[in-house]
Design a protein around this nucleic acid. Sequence first.
DNA 1: TATGAATGAGTTTTCATTCAT
DNA 2: AATGAATGAAAACTCATTCAT
Lengths: 200, 200, 200, 200
Amino acid sequence: MAAVEKPRGLARENILDSATRLFLDKGIDKASLSDIAAEAGVSKGTLHYHFASKNDLIFHITETHMEAITDELLSLLNRMKKCPDRLFSALMSSLLEAKGRGRLHLHLVREAVAGNPELRSKIAGSYKGWENLLQDSLSQLFPGHRAPAFAAQLIISIIDGFIIQDLVRQKEVDFTHLVEALMALNVFFSEKPDLEKLMV
Amino acid sequence: MAAVEKPRGLARENILDSATRLFLDKGIDKASLSDIAAEAGVSKGTLHYHFASKNDLIFHITETHMEAITDELLSLLNRMKKCPDRLFSALMSSLLEAKGRGRLHLHLVREAVAGNPELRSKIAGSYKGWENLLQDSLSQLFPGHRAPAFAAQLIISIIDGFIIQDLVRQKEVDFTHLVEALMALNVFFSEKPDLEKLMV
Amino acid sequence: MAAVEKPRGLARENILDSATRLFLDKGIDKASLSDIAAEAGVSKGTLHYHFASKNDLIFHITETHMEAITDELLSLLNRMKKCPDRLFSALMSSLLEAKGRGRLHLHLVREAVAGNPELRSKIAGSYKGWENLLQDSLSQLFPGHRAPAFAAQLIISIIDGFIIQDLVRQKEVDFTHLVEALMALNVFFSEKPDLEKLMV
Amino acid sequence: MAAVEKPRGLARENILDSATRLFLDKGIDKASLSDIAAEAGVSKGTLHYHFASKNDLIFHITETHMEAITDELLSLLNRMKKCPDRLFSALMSSLLEAKGRGRLHLHLVREAVAGNPELRSKIAGSYKGWENLLQDSLSQLFPGHRAPAFAAQLIISIIDGFIIQDLVRQKEVDFTHLVEALMALNVFFSEKPDLEKLMV
DNA sequence: TATGAATGAGTTTTCATTCAT
DNA sequence: AATGAATGAAAACTCATTCAT
């Protein structure tokens, strides 16, 4: 019952990995299919055998990237069901820490915005999905939350904003305050805000 | 005594305008110098007479873009000196509403992050400058603020995050709640938070 | 059992041939890659598929050119082992007569000298090699030669000098005297110069 | 009678100097008129005011270069009228030592050979002139010389050859042997060669 | 499945030259 | 005598894509 090595799709996986790395590194436009093929150790012919076009490749990578984030968010929200106070710190560190993910995200978003409507609607869908997941969690964790939808959107925006800060300024982000602030926000929006809690 | 139209630097301005428009529209990589020259109604030769390279052009546009935002932020903070409660709404609407500015911003940031260190340090400098401006204002408007530096960074991140939301999802942002939330945050961070105020 | 025409590397050879011809004809700078591609009957894309850059192409051609001269010199020196008196005439006619070789040589040397250090060191190496080959032959043919190294360098210089004369003045060179003179030189430098021989 | 500063033709001289330096340095093709104008501290417009075209500029520089060599050769031959034995050493050092002259010479010759027939015939004329000057001197210095014309051509070729050696190999040339050898050659060609002299 | 060869449209950039002022 | 602005042609090079094998 040993897991046998599957050469099945090995080249394909290689290509996706290499493309992801290069997109992340140099940006989508500046990573050529030649670069990617070379990095993956296959010929350009093989690359086009597996992916009809560069757009196709971008699309697959976006899909993988977005699904990975969604999966992580989902599992994180499940794990955090019982401890609202740790939700935000877990969220921040989990989403920000993945080395390179932020970079790739920026490149994919830009590609989507600059004339790739199909890609944009895929990404928009993911964003909407994350917002819904978060919104549900907030409703559960903070019963009577007055604006869970808005809070969810705000949290996602803050994460995106911090990704940009991180990429541009390359300095450490002060999570302590960030988490504190988010807690404050949500407690404040709760039905019966425990204002004393805010002042701890 | 009306200012006479100076054809002085007309071509140069044309080029900068056209380049800005095209960068904003198609992204930096996909806007070719041919496109830009054509849009500006000059030859490619003329374009290179005024800007030594594409990078040079990008750099000039970034400079203009960043300075425009800084100027606007500065004047806005001055105007808002007397009314802290309207600061956030003014901030959001002013920075988000400029048609196309967000798009251009995304393209420039991505360009900077993907292998243009000189550009990145320019942008990083602007971010730092905005942060300082905001921090000072917050200190004045909310005496005894416990974390004006962090709050400033948070505000900037939120704006960037909402820019991305806007570009990707193309749906209206609910400013009412956003401003409310930001006020809550700041009051929370004040020395003697007037918690009653939060509950209004 | 005739060797079948191999289309293997055909385009590559075509390109090298055409480039050699055009470099020789118009000079390296004035022979454009478009010219070369057209002459070779391939697209510019194909040209760049086989040779990464113009420099790469120049380098390959230099290599071939230099090796051809070295090979010819080597075989000539071997054939002439027994007849020193015919060495010089053979040398001169063999190296000067190759139509176009002198021209190409001039262009390559100039390219090397004008800012292509890698190329220059390759060419310098070839010169050194020729000098060594000649030096050894002179030592054998004229036992007790007092300055074979210098004589070798002188001979090579004379050939280069005559190439230039030939290219600039396009008039026939008087080999009779040249060969006579070189013989005189070497006999003179021998341990026991047979001065009578000089006067024949 | 003090020599007044002539601003007359100052720009012109500047341009010629700068062009000479840049041609010498980077080669004729790779030195652009922009480079030259910048180096000379004038505008491209001014450059074209003084020299109708790049070819015109090349032509003027060639003329100056060739005349300088001719003048130097002439004066040298006059000075050496009384001391034939020092003729060769003086010749070599004088012509080889001018820093940069060899480089410029190579570039000009190559330009002439590669599709500039007018330039070539000018250069060919200079070569012929030098040959005649040398031939006359040899006839005077070595009465009864059997082949002054050929010897003159040989000497010029050797100088050209050594220029190339110098440029390519960048190593010092052994003048002692060179001069010895040339003396030997000429004595050999004399009517009554003083063979004993050769053996000193 | 995989590839190497080939391509053509397109990219940024260079540059000698022209010309109104 | 001098210049800055403009230009068009051409340069080297890139790259996604096609295709026969």
